[in-house]
Each structure stands twice: as structure tokens, then as C-alpha cells.
Write a protein that binds this DNA or RNA. Structure first.
Length: 707
DNA sequence: TCAATGAGGCTCAGTTTGTG
DNA sequence: CACAAACTGAGCCTCATTGA
């Protein structure tokens, strides 16, 4: 039958050709090119075909070898021998061998394989087997891999055999249903379960949206519990199948993940971030069909599509026939048209999508994904959620939920609500009431609410508001804030610490400024007061020489400080810079004077000159005013406390420069004008020539130096 | 973000061989 | 001879990855 024409790939060779090839293979299983060419010439086959035949035979040999190995290992298996030619693992390949004259291939003693080995000849299905298979077939015509394996194990057959049985069974059923030869493709369209279970669809088929009621969720038993899984836990790393399931669950609620979430899931699934992103992208937008796989009948859609008269279908599209000029649109035109349609119809019926796919020469998936995208984008615009959580945040507009899923979700939601309520209740019992009192705006927001997750700015505001009443919230509160802001607890704590430090700085500066002002008032009621006012205000805002005393200046300056502080590596404690004259005996330095860092040089000089006078007036004044006396006493006490103890010189290179702001490192004073010294209280003191004070003064940020 | 690509897997159609 | 079983190539799809 096949002897009269050259065999195409996939078709068996005739006996004569097969015999010749087999005989050649017996002598040399990997012949040279010349031999192949010679054979091709004799047999009137292509060289490629000959090569393939040899490759097949080699593979078969290998397979036989493995069988023998298995056989020797499987000593318990019943070994039956029979006089027969090679066992046909591939019937076509064995055609000639089976029937060829004994002269070309010597007959061999072939061992009959144990039942469960591959390549056995013709397995028989018992009635019991058939019962099991039929029952399974009734459940699903397209069993999953797991189910096939399970059945194979149960029936003591190979998974391939079971798979083949299902294939045949499907064919049989279809033939019974459509004796007149209706194409199988039509039938498969009506098999939603296949759409669920199978990874592929035949050519020319349009994938249907899953029917809500039929789908059997295979996620029933594997609830993703990402929430509490840490990297150290067992189960943190998932295999591909688990990862896919998890992704699918997440995708149901979140079509696009944040960077952090992507990183997290990439880690869990041991995949790259790009792979996870691509997975979500493809899942959302519908997989683009490879060019390779562009179905042949994709273009030649049935003309009946034109007859689609869905009432929602946009009028302008409806009456355009395929034969009209302008029926087929280019990319831009298609996009425009899609957008126009989308304005009136967010989700198109199947017919409309098909029609648009035709007009735009795109796939149905592409059109559908365009509409989904557009809708998602629109939803995002209106949504307040600025930083959505990847896992827990529910999107209530899910369209493809099955009835079962919906029930499951609702049950889950209820239990989650219950749980969170309980948690809140417990938290409320354990946490100081002051903390909950300070969250009047936050308190009632649940994780499920839109707006639960805050972006950076919103978080900052919330932190600030919270900080006003609570300098360092309890752990639970920190956790809550970290959740809302999608930051780490450490980050939240740092924010609060910073805020506190910032405040301390501000208070200290205010205090110092007030002291100066007070001094001025007590000592001189003369014209000098205005000068001190100026000084005080300058101290509060050294950068600005303006006399603006309002709070906005304060805020501005503190903002700057905070900004600069971010440059610093590790802030340990604040220090004061004392400026003394070159060769001054440090012990004699007047603390109140030296504490003023950014005093203008002239003023420093002036204050030095007037120091004696000032001291005199201070000691005199208490007698006149008891309140003032008390204040001055306190002040003196404080100053005594602040007396600089004997200094210990530390070479500049031994200073922990890593802990000092970069601006300090580059300061000339540190290196050029003498080594900085640290007193026992940790203050850094820099000796310098008063002339250099001008230079220092220009470095107005000095007062923010911290270790 | 998106197009392109390759690997791998599944189904179907078509074929031969084995069996009763 | 009819049917069952085994097998292959083609077509198609999913997935992961890369690079613009």
C-alpha cells in the first residue's frame, strides 16, 4: 500500500526499504554521510529521512537496553521467553523486522516485558478496568495529569496507556454523537472542563470564558497562606506547580503586583522577577499567540460573524461589511475604535469581540485584554488605593468568579472579618487606651477598605499626626502603621525617632534663643536688646538673616535640618560645637558663650568684651527680683553641670568619621586647624583661630553635626 | 511594557500492528 | 475483518526568558 510512493515523515516505510535500512543498521548504527547518501539514492528517499530512521533505530536500541537493565533488576517479575522477533515498541518500526526473512536479521530470544513496562504489546483492559475508566471518563473527558497517573497506578498500566484510552474514548464518543462527521473541534468548544484542565486548544477554537457553575476548583485544598510564611519556614519555597497555584490565587485579587510583592514571590517561587511579572502580565492581558502558532483558520472566520446583532453592539461597527474598504483597520485605528466602543460598552459580548478581532486583525484575546486593561485603568484612576497590598486586597469587581468561588470567598471574608474583629478586640485590651485614642481617623479603617494602604506622603502625614500625641507607640501600633504604610516596623520606628529628635533639636534651639533673649532683657534694657533679638532669631534660623520670628521660619529650618540629617550614617547623639580661640585654655572657656555656634564673628567678639559686664549684672540682679534670682540660680546650676571637664586629645584620624556627616568630614577645621577633641561627655571641641570663624560661620550647617 | 523566541507539553489525525 | 492499542508529526498552547 505504501510501497509505491516515497514515505513522508510519519508514514511507515515499505518492507523492502525497511529491511535494507535495518540490515545496514545491524552493521553500523551510525553510518557515515556517504553511506546515508548511498542508501537514500537506492531507496529513493531523502538523506534526512534516512538519518531520521537511523536515529529512531538508535533510540529504540537504547530503549531496549534500558528494558534489559530493568528486567535484570526486576528479578521477582515473571520471566517468560518466547521465540519471537524483537518486541515492537513502535509497530511501524517493527513492521519489516517482524516479517522480514530470517536471513537479514537473526531471530532473537525476546523477553516478554513485565506488564508495567513501556512498549509492551497490546494491553488488555478487563471489565473492572473498563468500569473504573468509564466512571472516570464520565466525570471528565480530559483528566488532569494527576488523575491519569492515579488511574494508571490503580489499573497497573502506564500513564500513556491511560491517556491513550481517554483519547480513543473521546473519539469514540464524538463519533457516536456526530455520525455524520461533524468536526471534533465543534464538540470541544462545548467542553468547558477541558478549557479548565487542558493547557491547549485546537486550532480555530476560541477559548471560552469558563462557565461559572461547572468549574471544579482545584484550589479547594490549597489555600495560599502567604501571610505568615517567612523565609525560614518550611514551605516558603514553592515548586512550580505550587507557585502557579499561588500566583493564580493572588492574580484573582490583584492583577498587577508592586515591586516588593514581585520580589517576594520571585523569591518564594525561586523564579526571576521578570518571570513573575510576565506571568501576571500574560494572565491579565491574555496570552499573545505566537506567530508560530497563528492558527491557519484564524483569518478565515465564518462570515456569520457579520450577522452578529447583539443589541449592545456599537452601531458604527455593526454595519461594516468585510468587503467594505476600511473594514480592516491598522493598529492605531483599531485602538481608536476600541476606545470609542469601550466608552459605551465596558465588556463586549463574544460576537462583538470576535468581530473586532476580525476588523483589527488581532486575536480575540488581544481585544478582550484591551477592554479589560481599559477598565482596570479606569478603576485604578478612581480608586483611592495608592499602594495596594498584593495579597489581601480584594478586588470586588472580579468577573470570572465561579459560583463556588463566590460562596467560598464570602465565607472566607466573613471569617476574616470575624478574625480581624477579634484581633482588634484583643489588641484593644492589651494596648494602652491612649494609643487607640490617638487614632481617631485611623481606628475605623479596616484592611479591606479602600484607602487602608497609604502611599509615602499619606503615611508621613499619619505618622506625624500620631507622633503628636505619642512619641513612641507600642509594638502593636507600630505593626499596624507599618502595615498601613507598607513599610517595615523598623522604618516606622525610625520615623518616630526622627520626629522626636527633630523636635528635641527645635526645643533646644528655642530654649537657647530664649535664654539669650532673657539675658538681654535682664542685663540691658537699653538699645542692645534689639541686637540680641536679632541674634536669637538668627540662632533659631542661622541660614536666614531676616528677623522673621514666626513659626514658619522654624519649620522651614527644621525641614532643612531633617533633610541634611538623612545624609548622615548613624546618628548617635547630638553634640555641641564649642568654638574657642586658638591656644585658649579650654577649662576657662565660658560655656554660655561658646555654645553659640553660629554667632557672627563681630558679635562673638562683642560678647567676649562684654562678658565681665554681663556677669556682674547677673550677680547683682537677683537681689532686686526674686523670680529672676531663682531663674539665674537655676541657670548657674545648669552651667555648672555643663562645665567642660578636662579634655582628652584625640587624633583626628581616630575619630569615627563614618558616623559623622560627610559635610563634616570635608570641613577644613577638622584637619587644617587642629585635631578635634572629644570631651568626656562626648562633645566635640574644635580649636581654631578666631579668624577662621568666618569660614566656619559660612558653614552654617555646623550646628546640625551629630555623632 | 511588549514583542519575540525557544522549550516543553498536550491533543488530534492518521497510521500500522496485534488480537479475537 | 473489526476493533484496540501504540505510535508519530503537526498544530497549538503555556511558560520562562530576553532584549529593545
Amino acid at each position: 500500500m505504501t510501497e509505491n510512493f516515497p514515505s513522508p515523515l510519519g508514514r511507515p516505510l515499505c518492507k523492502r526499504k525497511r529491511n535494507l535500512i535495518d540490515a545496514t543498521f545491524e552493521n553500523d548504527n551510525n553510518p557515515k554521510r556517504e553511506t546515508i547518501a548511498h542508501l537514500a539514492n537506492i531507496l529513493q528517499l531523502s538523506e534526512k529521512r534516512i538519518q531520521i530512521e537511523f536515529a529512531r533505530l538508535r533510540a529504540k536500541n537504547k530503549k531496549d537496553h534500558y528494558r534489559k537493565v530493568i528486567k535484570t533488576l526486576n528479578t521477582s517479575a515473571p520471566v517468560q521467553t518466547e521465540k519471537k522477533t524483537k518486541t515492537p515498541s513502535h509497530p511501524r518500526a517493527e513492521t519489516s523486522t517482524m516479517e522480514k526473512p530470517s536471513s537479514s536479521t537473526p531471530t532473537k530470544e525476546v523477553v516478554k516485558e513485565p506488564e508495567n513496562l513501556i512498549g509492551k504489546s497490546r494491553s488488555i483492559y478487563t471489565i473492572d478496568d473498563m468500569k473504573i475508566l468509564t466512571k472516570s471518563f464520565a466525570k471528565t473527558q480530559h483528566p488532569s495529569k494527576q488523575r491519569i497517573e492515579k488511574l494508571a497506578k490503580k489499573l497497573d498500566k502506564t500513564p500513556i496507556q491511560v491517556k491513550n484510552w481517554f483519547t480513543r474514548q473521546r473519539t469514540k464518543v464524538l463519533k457516536q454523537q456526530y455520525p455524520n462527521g461533524l468536526t471534533i473541534k465543534r464538540e470541544r468548544e462545548e467542553s468547558p472542563e477541558r478549557a479548565q484542565n487542558s493547557r491547549s486548544l485546537p486550532a480555530g477554537l476560541i477559548k471560552q470564558e469558563p462557565e461559572p457553575k461547572i468549574i471544579v476548583s482545584h484550589h479547594e485544598n490549597d489555600e495560599p497562606t502567604v501571610k505568615n510564611i517567612s523565609e525560614g519556614d518550611e514551605g516558603f519555597y514553592l515548586d512550580p506547580e505550587e507557585s502557579r497555584k499561588l500566583f493564580l490565587e493572588i492574580w484573582k485579587t490583584e492583577k498587577k503586583l508592586s515591586k516588593e510583592a514581585l520580589e517576594y514571590y520571585a523569591k518564594r517561587s525561586r523564579k526571576t522577577i521578570g518571570a513573575v511579572r510576565a506571568w501576571f502580565y500574560n494572565k491579565t492581558n491574555g496570552k499573545k499567540i505566537c506567530r508560530k502558532s497563528l492558527p491557519a483558520d484564524f483569518i478565515k472566520k465564518e462570515p456569520e460573524l457579520e450577522a452578529s446583532h447583539h443589541e449592545n453592539f456599537v452601531q458604527s461597527v455593526k454595519n461594516i461589511s468585510e468587503k467594505d474598504a476600511g473594514f480592516y483597520l491598522d493598529h492605531i485605528e483599531s485602538k481608536k475604535l476600541f476606545r470609542e466602543i469601550w466608552k459605551t460598552e465596558k465588556k463586549l459580548p463574544k460576537e462583538a469581540i470576535e468581530f473586532l478581532a476580525k476588523r483589527s486583525r488581532k486575536t480575540v484575546f488581544a481585544v478582550r485584554s484591551f477592554f479589560n486593561d481599559e477598565t482596570n485603568r479606569d478603576a485604578k484612576k478612581t480608586s483611592k488605593q495608592s499602594l495596594p497590598a498584593p495579597i489581601k486586597n480584594k478586588d470586588h469587581e472580579l468577573e470570572e468568579k465561579t459560583f463556588e468561588d463566590e460562596i467560598k470567598d464570602s465565607v472566607q471574608n466573613e471569617s476574616q472579618c470575624e478574625e480581624s474583629f477579634q484581633n482588634d478586640k484583643n489588641a484593644g485590651e492589651n494596648i494602652e487606651p491612649s494609643w487607640f485614642d490617638i487614632l481617631p481617623t485611623v481606628n475605623n479603617i479596616s484592611e479591606k477598605d479602600a484607602g487602608f494602604y497609604l502611599d509615602h506622603e499619606e503615611s508621613k502625614k499619619l505618622f506625624h499626626e500620631t507622633w503628636k500625641t505619642e512619641r513612641m507607640p507600642p509594638k502593636e501600633a507600630l505593626e499596624y502603621l507599618s502595615k498601613r504604610s507598607s513599610k517595615t516596623i523598623g522604618a516606622v520606628r525610625l520615623c518616630f525617632n526622627r520626629e522626636t529628635k527633630k523636635n528635641e533639636d527645635r526645643l533646644r534651639k528655642d530654649k537657647e534663643a530664649n535664654q539669650i533673649k532673657e539675658k538681654l532683657q535682664t542685663e540691658n534694657h537699653s538699645d542692645k536688646s534689639s541686637q540680641f533679638d536679632k541674634e536669637a532669631s538668627e540662632k533659631r534660623n542661622p541660614k536666614s538673616l531676616s528677623t522673621d520670628k514666626n513659626s514658619s521660619a522654624d519649620i522651614l529650618s527644621s525641614e532643612d535640618i531633617v533633610h541634611r540629617e538623612t545624609e548622615k550614617v548613624q546618628i548617635k547623639r547630638a553634640i555641641k560645637i564649642k568654638i574657642t580661640g586658638e591656644n585658649d585654655v579650654l577649662d576657662k572657656v565660658e560655656p554660655s558663650k561658646s555654645a553659640v555656634v553660629n554667632k557672627e564673628p563681630e558679635k562673638v567678639e562683642a560678647s567676649k568684651k562684654d562678658s565681665a559686664e554681663k556677669n556682674r549684672s547677673i550677680t547683682e540682679s537677683p537681689k532686686k527680683d526674686p523670680l529672676k534670682f531663682e531663674y539665674l540660680q537655676e541657670k548657674e546650676q545648669k552651667e555648672d553641670e555643663e562645665q567642660i571637664p578636662p579634655l582628652e586629645k584625640i587624633p583626628a584620624d581616630e575619630l569615627e568619621y563614618e558616623n559623622v556627616s560627610s559635610s563634616v568630614k570635608t570641613l577644613p577645621v577638622c584637619h587644617k586647624y587642629g585635631s578635634p577633641v572629644i570631651d568626656k561627655t562626648g562633645r566635640i571641641i574644635i580649636h581654631m583661630n578666631s579668624r577662621q570663624l568666618v569660614n566656619i560661620y559660612q558653614c552654617s550647617h555646623l550646628h546640625t553635626i551629630k555623632l
